[in-house]
């Protein structure tokens, strides 16, 4: 089996993989990083969003082998020890999650959104940018609020 190497959450990792192994399978099954979830098979739900070289990517729609040498960040790599990332804290503060299954993808999407669109995000922008992330629990109300608050908090920190 071919071997793939990449950096995940700052650590070099490698593994022998079947060529069809998706990034999400490499993360969940090889590295046992189970915070990245799979909620659909048509690349729509966004539960699997991680960052690849800083970009939000659906890890269910990328071959692990394609990402040889990439710098990958998952939800497990966002907090600084027990100190939550401001976006994680904002989801908690604003009750932006219920069952928690979509949450890692939502947070990773939100963090990248801030990197592209800045710290002041209006409701319309946030809702549009969440096109690729489904949540069945929250009705999105508190997710939208959490992302706006998280974006502000990320700015305050910087």
């Amino acid at each position: 089996m071919p071997k793939v190497s990449m950096t995940v959450n700052g650590k070099p990792v490698s593994g022998d993989v079947d060529s069809r192994t998706l990034l999400v399978q490499f993360l969940r099954e090889t590295l046992r990083l189970t915070g990245t979830h799979v909620g659909c098979d048509t690349s729509q739900c966004g539960c699997c969003v991680v960052h690849v070289d800083g970009d939000a990517v659906k890890s269910c729609t990328a071959l692990a082998l394609s990402l040889e040498g990439a710098d990958v960040r998952t939800i497990e790599g966002l907090a600084n020890g027990d100190k939550l990332h401001p976006m994680q804290e904002a989801f908690r503060e604003n009750h932006g999650l219920q069952c928690g299954f979509c949450t890692p993808g939502m947070i990773m999407t939100a963090v990248e959104l801030v990197s592209r669109k800045g710290h002041t995000l209006d409701e319309k922008t946030i809702r549009e940018e969440l096109e690729g992330n489904l949540c069945r629990c929250t009705g999105y109300h508190n997710i939208v609020k959490a992302i706006a608050a998280g974006a502000t908090a990320m700015g305050a920190k910087a």
Binding site: G46, V52, V57, K58, T109, L113, R116, E129, E131
Partner: peptide, 9 residues
């Protein structure tokens, strides 16, 4: 096109 993650790839 698609969503942000799609546009990134």
């Amino acid at each position: 096109i698609g969503d942000p993650a799609v546009r990134n790839r």
